[in-house]
């Protein structure tokens, strides 16, 4: 799980071009939107694309997406839940 979260942070930084942000600057449980990284609605679409490209997970329901994209922690938990045991 820890390794997944580290990878995810790096992927988020690259996908959203967060130039002055390092993986260690992102708190696992801090909200990605509004506060925290201050991401917006277009970023949420880009994060959906990230999940599809890197983890082959397609989020169909936007309401579900809101919960998944709350934080790095929630994203990592969702990815892990979709991976074969």
């Amino acid at each position: 799980m820890e390794a997944l979260k580290q990878t995810l942070k790096q992927q988020i930084i690259e996908a959203l071009n967060l130039q002055d942000t390092k993986p260690e600057d992102i708190d696992d449980k801090a909200p990605l939107f509004g506060e925290g990284l201050g991401l917006d609605s277009i970023d949420s679409l880009e994060l959906m694309v990230l999940l599809e490209r890197h983890y082959q997970i397609k989020v169909e329901d936007p309401r579900e997406g809101r919960k998944i994209l709350q934080s790095v922690q929630s994203m990592a938990e969702f990815i892990q839940s979709k991976q074969p045991a």
Binding site: L45, E46, V49, R53
Partner: peptide
């Protein structure tokens, strides 16, 4: 590259 799937919206916009 992604076979018309998983397209990032920003370059399109």
């Amino acid at each position: 590259q992604y076979g018309e799937k998983a397209l990032n919206p920003t370059p399109f916009i």
